[in-house]
Simulated scan of single mutants.
Amino acid sequence: MTRIMSVVTPVHDAALPFLPEAFASLRSQELPAGWDWEWLIQVDGGKETDVPADIREDARVAVGDNRRGGPGVARTMAWGRSRGELVKVLDADDVLPAGALARDIEVMEAHPSVGWTVCKVLDLMPDGSLVHYTLGDPDPGQLTRGELYAYWSTTHRPAVHPASLCIRESLLAEAGGWMALPASEDTALLLALDVMADGWFISEAGLHYRKHPGQTTAHPDHRGGAEWEARMGAIGKHTEALVRRYLPTI
């Protein structure tokens, strides 16, 4: 019986032109024996037919759409249609380097107690160059529960890149999917997972994170102002509630 990794991708109009490159990087992945992937694309505020026909025609691809709800809603809607035991995040404008999915699977199979993985990320610049994600990386290997929350609580920045997450589906279900935020929903999920289960950092680059003017993180409200304060407040309240349940000694 084939085991499935579900790759979930929200997409809005500014990211649609990048979908073919994301698709090419996904098709080039070589998975361990007995594994295959499915790609759940969720068009936020558009139609299924916005996705190029050659992508929709691949039997491993399932496209859905919804009224505009933001990235958190679109991610959760895509996950709601998934069948896999592992759920992998892939933004529509990003690219998977060779071996990315296989490394996630190998860690999860070798370490049953690990609930999620993240990896080294390289920023894909407009000129095509790759630049190491600026926050720096933790040591490769296990990330102990609460470690990332401790960092975020003093900096309000994630210590690792949430766009590289791979999650056991059962843990994602317990976390409730992604928060309905206009941005930072992936950080909110990362912190929830960090409190709920040990993670794993993979030191090989597993994502090329595209930088372009149309991305959500380029919005002027992303890193300051009333919206930012409200997002951080919601993330903090959610994570603190989980800390009281899962890590009461912190």
Rank of each mutant, 00 (worst) to 15 (best):
E21I: 10
W116K: 01
Q142P: 08
T144C: 00
H156W: 08
L242I: 02
R60G: 01
Q142K: 06
D65K: 08
I55D: 01
H12V: 09
L189T: 02
T217H: 15
D58N: 12
M1H: 12
V11L: 04
A100N: 04
A110T: 03
M125S: 13
W228T: 05
I235W: 02
M108I: 01
E185V: 02
V63D: 00
V61N: 09
L181F: 14
A230T: 12
P71L: 08
I235C: 10
M196D: 01
L148E: 08
A183C: 14
M5Y: 06
Q42C: 14
R67F: 10
L124I: 04
G233L: 14
A230K: 13
F18T: 06
A74R: 15
D104R: 02
L31D: 06
P126H: 11
G64V: 00
G141I: 01
G136R: 02
R27M: 11
Y133A: 14
P138R: 00
D137V: 12
I202Y: 08
C166A: 15
Y209R: 04
A188R: 03
R145C: 08
Q215T: 05
L171Y: 03
V107L: 07
Y151C: 08
V160S: 01
D221F: 07
A159P: 01
E21W: 09
S28R: 09
T187K: 12
A150I: 08
A197C: 15
G72E: 00
P10G: 07
L90D: 14
E85N: 03
L172C: 07
L247M: 05
A188E: 03
A98S: 04
G115N: 03
L242P: 04
Y209K: 00
L96C: 11
G199P: 00
G84E: 07
L135F: 13
V131D: 10
L193R: 05
A98L: 02
G34D: 09
